[in-house]
Every structure is written in C-alpha cells, then in structure tokens.
Simulated scan of single mutants.
Amino acid sequence: MEPFYRTIIGVARTLFAAQGLKFTITGEEHIPATGGAVIAINHTGYMDFTYAGIPARATKRYIRFMAKKEVFDHKISGPMMRAMKHIPVDRGDAHESYRLAVEALKAGELVGVFPEETISRSFELKTFRSGAARMANEAGVPVIPMIIWGSQRVWTKGHPKHLGRTNTPITIKVGEPIAPYEPASEMTAQLHSTMEKMLHEVQQDYVHEPGAYWVPRRLGGTAPTLEEATAQDEAAAAERRARKAREKAERERARGGDPGTSAQ
C-alpha cells in the first residue's frame, strides 16, 4: 500500500471528473499483476503521464515514470515525485537514470517511459530511442506498448491549455507484452511498428474535427507533418544549446571578471 501515491491518484480522478474527461480504456489485462515491465507510451500532451497510470489500477499497481530532473528539482513537485518513487532523468547523466530504472524493473516495478522522449508536435510517432528495449533486456522483463489519444486536446506543446470542463474523450489502448530480445535495435523497431498500428486503430474510432490543430495532417487536421515537426524540434534544440552556451559564458565571465573592465 502506498497512501501518498493513492491519494494523488484520488485527487487526479477528481480533477478528471471535474473536467468531464471521457476515458475509453482497452487492454488493461495486459498489465501484469506482479513482476517488472517497461510501459512504453506515446507522447502527445503534457498530461500523458497522469492518464497512463489509469490502466494499471485494474491490477492495483503503480507506474514509476521516468521524468525530467527539473521536475524533481522543483520545491513542490520534487518531494511528491520522490515520494511516488518516480525516476529522475538528467540529460547530462543518462547512465544514472538508466541504472535506477533497471534496478526498479529487477525489483518487480512497472517503469513508464516515453520512447519518443519529447512531445510529438505532429501527433504521429516520432523516432524511438532504444532505452526501453535495452532496459527490458538487461532486467529480463517485457515491454508493454500503450497508446493514449486525445490528451493533446487538453494541453500540448505550442498551444493553450484546456483544463476546464471540456468533456474531452481520451482513448487508452494497452497492447500485448513484447518479450525482450536482442538486438535492441530490432526490438525497438518492432515496438515502433506495433505502437503505430495501435495508434491507427485507436484513431479509426475517434471523431476528429476537420482542420483542428490537434488533428494530424494525415487525418485532415492542421498539425505539422512529421517532417515539419522534426525541423521545429531541431530548431528548438539548437536554440536551447545556444542559450546554455550563453549562460555558461556569462557564468564564466562572472567568476573570472570582465577582462575589458580590468584593462581600463
């Protein structure tokens, strides 16, 4: 029993009810009642991790999500994340987060990962990182694919959040476990193919608004194509690197003083 995690889930369910969110969930039986497993989830919105834990409650289990270290550094969210045994991911030291995830899997935990790493602006599946497959192989546990669709309507990258009573339908589909096997690259390719098929299946039964920003171009929406979204991601990443370089240079100047000033 985990009173704090259970309380947070209760608060989340109250919030979901207040928002009028309408969940359609299938495949909960694929979440194991015991033992470790990697839960691989697609990523279209900021609230995905709150929805991804719902199917696991069918077996009264909790998912330990891998999340950005910045969330753990926050004075409010940090203690909460640690209390729920989530796993911090430091982009500068990925090895440590990987080690912690494997340890959790070997201890019989469910570890939630987003193989795309960041939100997909196109709402199509981006290229997957191989971390989920590598962790599964090292820990000797399966990877369970999960698709969430509709969460981008609540809050996604580059668009206003809609946290009021929107009555938004959200579909969650859990797929059959994929047993670990080498090489990890082939397992990752299978995972991507499986989740893409699941995504298309879920979309067939979902009502999409023509021309809406949250609808993929392929389905008549105005979301960027996967290629356009990739270019946007690359531009944003380049800007982050440039900003970090500027901040580092400013810190170094502050420590060493301004040579121009000392020479005057």
Rank of each mutant, 00 (worst) to 15 (best):
M1L: 05
E2W: 12
Y5C: 03
T14K: 12
F16K: 03
F16L: 08
A18D: 04
Q19N: 02
L21N: 07
K22G: 07
I25Y: 03
E29Y: 00
H30T: 01
T34D: 09
T34R: 14
G36N: 07
G36P: 00
V38K: 05
I39Y: 10
I41A: 06
T44P: 06
T44K: 04
M47P: 11
D48S: 04
D48M: 03
P55E: 06
A58H: 12
F65Q: 10
M66D: 05
A67Y: 01
K69H: 03
V71Y: 14
V71N: 07
H74T: 01
H74W: 07
G78S: 10
M81F: 15
R82G: 15
A83H: 07
K85H: 15
H86T: 04
P88T: 05
P88D: 06
V89M: 13
D90W: 11
G92Y: 13
D93T: 09
H95K: 15
E96R: 15
S97N: 11
Y98C: 08
Y98W: 15
L100K: 15
A104V: 06
G108W: 01
G108P: 00
E109D: 12
L110E: 02
G112M: 10
F114Q: 06
F114N: 05
E117D: 08
T118M: 12
I119T: 13
S120N: 09
S120F: 05
S120V: 07
R121C: 06
S122C: 00
F123A: 02
E124I: 12
E124W: 14
L125V: 12
T127L: 14
T127P: 14
R129N: 10
R129H: 15
G131N: 08
A133K: 06
A133E: 09
M135L: 06
M135W: 03
V141Y: 00
P142L: 00
P142Y: 00
P142N: 01
V143W: 00
I144V: 15
P145H: 00
M146I: 00
M146A: 00
S151P: 12
R153L: 05
W155I: 11
H159R: 12
P160Y: 09
H162F: 06
K173R: 08
E182D: 09
E182I: 02
S185G: 11
T188W: 08
A189I: 02
S193Y: 04
T194R: 06
T194E: 10
E196V: 04
M198P: 07
P210R: 08
Y213A: 10
V215L: 09
P224N: 09
T225S: 15
A231E: 14
D233G: 08
D233K: 13
A235F: 05
A236W: 11
A238T: 10
E239Q: 15
R240S: 10
R241D: 14
R243A: 13
K244A: 14
A245P: 05
R246C: 02
E247A: 13
K248P: 07
E252P: 08
